[in-house]
């Protein structure tokens, strides 16, 4: 089959050195400290250099929003590990406050569900949420297509990434998904220490041991999240106003499983020093408040994660050590990576 095809295609194509050869697909190199064997991608949307470049350009493109002022990067800024530093953003087109904290974006290729409750099944589908939500970018997808079709730069980029002159919503989703999937954080001091390229001081080592003992059952080492949903005792009960479509119910509004009431996806501890405020609604301004919650603020109800029933008790020294370790998870190479920036 191959033997027959090769001469035929070489006759037909007769490629000249200047001719474009189609998108350059690749798989990113993974650090051992990420503890992941493979890099998951969707078969229908393999990552290419051209696709990522297009996705990045769209990610930083405010023209996509209804008022031309809001881009994905408005709430996902690279210097904050692609979060926004706000509890609940009011930076969208309408200026109305959102109901969930803007999550950081990195290592999302491994996530089984996106958003705090995992409601989005894949990045390709997720992007239409923030793009079209009236309180986020409020975009009209038909107008976006019109705008992109009128831009020589974009039509060329779509052609390079997807080998088509037909720009669709679907391809916008796929390009953005490729860029977001390419955001990999695996070069913190912790990663270097794991790879024996850096040394931890004694406080950081004690902090690592405390992390292993108290935190690692949910914040699994490697990605520093188990990618699951847990009720970590923030609230005793969950109001359910119809217009908010179950937003306070957490994972329950997706799974309809009683044990998921008030459960949200375990956030990664990677880059945690950059991603304050904390929790799905940004209610804790700093890590001290988070640790106070785990020490004496746990609200016990039927769906509470059993590991948290007794809380997490740390003395002042232990707390300082744990915070020292958490600082080692900040990935300065990631936030300064020019490939991810505008």
């Amino acid at each position: 089959m191959f033997i027959a095809l090769v001469p035929l295609s070489s006759c037909l194509d007769n490629p000249s050195p200047n001719e474009r050869q189609g998108p350059e697909f690749f798989t990113p190199v993974l650090a051992s400290s990420l503890q992941q064997e493979t890099f998951p991608q969707l078969e229908r949307n393999p990552m290419s250099k051209e696709g990522i470049l297009l996705g990045k350009t769209l990610f930083y493109e405010p023209t996509l929003s209804q008022n031309g002022e809001v881009s994905c990067a408005t709430c996902h800024a690279p210097d904050l590990a692609f979060s926004d530093g706000l509890a609940l953003s009011d930076q969208g087109v309408s200026g109305k406050k959102l109901h969930r904290n803007s999550p950081p974006l990195f290592n999302l290729a491994w996530h089984k569900g996106l958003f705090w409750d995992g409601g989005a099944a894949n990045l390709e589908s997720l992007v239409f949420g923030p793009l079209t939500h009236p309180d986020e970018m409020a975009a009209d997808l038909k107008e976006i297509i019109h705008y992109l079709n009128g831009s020589a730069q974009y039509t060329e980029m779509f052609e390079a990434a997807f080998e088509t002159d037909s720009i669709t919503s679907s391809l916008i989703g796929r390009a953005l998904a490729q860029f977001v999937r390419s955001l990999i954080s695996q070069d913190s001091k912790y990663d270097q220490w794991k790879r024996k390229e850096a040394i931890f001081d004694s406080s950081e080592i004690r902090g690592y041991q405390l992390y292993q003992k108290h935190c690692s059952s949910c914040h699994t080492e490697g990605l520093f999240t188990d990618l699951e949903y847990h009720n970590n005792g923030l609230d005793i009960s969950y109001p359910n106003p119809t217009e908010l479509e179950g937003i306070y119910l957490g994972r329950y509004r997706i799974s309809f499983d009683e044990k998921d009431k008030g459960a949200f996806k375990t956030p990664s501890l990677r880059n945690i020093a950059l991603t304050a405020p904390y929790m799905h609604d940004g209610r804790f301004v700093d890590l001290e408040e988070v640790l106070n919650h785990y020490e004496h603020g746990i609200k016990v109800n039927e769906s509470l994660a059993p590991e948290l029933k007794m809380g997490i008790q740390l003395n002042a020294d232990e707390r300082a050590d744990l915070l020292a370790f958490l600082e080692t998870l900040t990935d300065y190479k990631f936030i300064n990576n020019k490939a991810y920036q505008k």
């Binding site: 958003f115 409750d117 409601g119 949420g129 997808l141």
Partner: peptide
């Protein structure tokens, strides 16, 4: 794409 294009105002924005 086509009638399933998300630009038809028929997709949920929080739940795929």
């Amino acid at each position: 794409v086509g009638d399933l294009d998300p630009n038809n105002d028929m997709v949920w924005n929080w739940n795929t």
